[in-house]
Amino acid sequence: MKLFNAQIDETQRQLLQALWEKGPAMPLELAVRTFMLPDEIQQPLQELEKAGLVERHAFKGGEMLVLTKLGQEIVRS
């Protein structure tokens, strides 16, 4: 777990924290929550997804970003 924490940069930590505090969000909503532009969160978000900390759930109007169990543990630690 500590290894994961060391690999997460400030932007990624903010994204995880925003999902933890306010719940699942659409990608644009997540950008707004962290006061960033959509382009700025694209790369860090992809890395979080690759690390298995965040996953996308499809729904009628688009897709939603949700913290995985591992992602929740990282935020709590």
Partner: peptide, 10 residues
């Protein structure tokens, strides 16, 4: 619940 809330937001 998540889906309904997100759909309402949309």
């Amino acid at each position: 619940i998540d889906r309904t809330l997100v759909s309402e937001r949309v």
